[in-house]
């Protein structure tokens, strides 16, 4: 890395404040609580980006629920280039057969990862499978997948914070911000 990360100054614009996020997550929690009353809800989160969202959302859902975590390789990762295919780095720890699964995502843009995950999870025979995302960037969508719960629709900008990273940095920001373009060219 040729340039030190500057959490305060690398962000060009705060897109969503901590308060806005909290309020929306609470709304989503109430809606999910109503929709899944009496069901066997399992939240499946996709590491690493959706971790803060998952942590906040699950505490806003007033229902008994299970959680599970998955991690899939991303295109371009050096560890996975040899296989040439997406790989499950961390699989579910328990069966979701017969469960009402809600896939919790941080952001949907192209839909490529989500498309893969949905197909993978459907193969595990859940009773139902729905999608909840904090951020939706429809302008960049390549694979159309219906989103059941959406936090915010955002413009086509490169955002970081609240779990979202660039080069594994900025995940710990409490807000969602737009990364200054000049940062792209200086971080490896």
């Amino acid at each position: 890395m040729s340039r030190p990360v500057d959490l305060a100054n690398d962000i060009g614009e705060v897109l969503l404040t901590e308060e806005q996020i909290a309020a929306r997550v609470a709304e989503l929690g109430r809606k999910i609580s109503a929709d899944y009353a009496g069901k066997n809800l399992t939240l499946v989160s996709v590491l690493k980006g959706s971790l803060p969202f998952m942590a906040d959302l699950m505490r806003q859902i007033a229902l008994p629920l299970r959680i599970d975590l998955m991690e899939v390789s991303s295109y371009g990762g050096t560890a996975t280039e040899s296989s040439g295919l997406v790989r499950i780095i961390k699989d579910l720890s328990a069966s979701i057969s017969g469960e009402d699964v809600l896939l919790v995502e941080d952001i949907i843009d192209t839909g490529l990862t989500l498309n893969y995950l949905v197909r993978y999870l459907r193969g595990k025979n859940p009773a139902s499978l729905k999608i909840c995302t904090l951020l939706d960037k429809p302008a960049r969508r390549l694979v159309e997948i219906p989103v059941d719960y959406q936090g915010f629709e955002i413009p086509d900008q490169f955002v970081v914070g609240y779990g979202l990273d660039y080069s594994e940095r900025y995940r710990n920001l409490r807000f969602v911000g737009v990364l200054r373009p000049e940062v792209y060219s200086s971080l490896g």
Binding site: G76, R141, D156, F158, Y166
Partner: peptide, 19 residues
Amino acid sequence: IKLFYARDFRMLLIKFGRL
């Protein structure tokens, strides 16, 4: 049909760390 602009593709590569 979906038109993928240079900007879309650039952002995709940035996301995947293919700078």
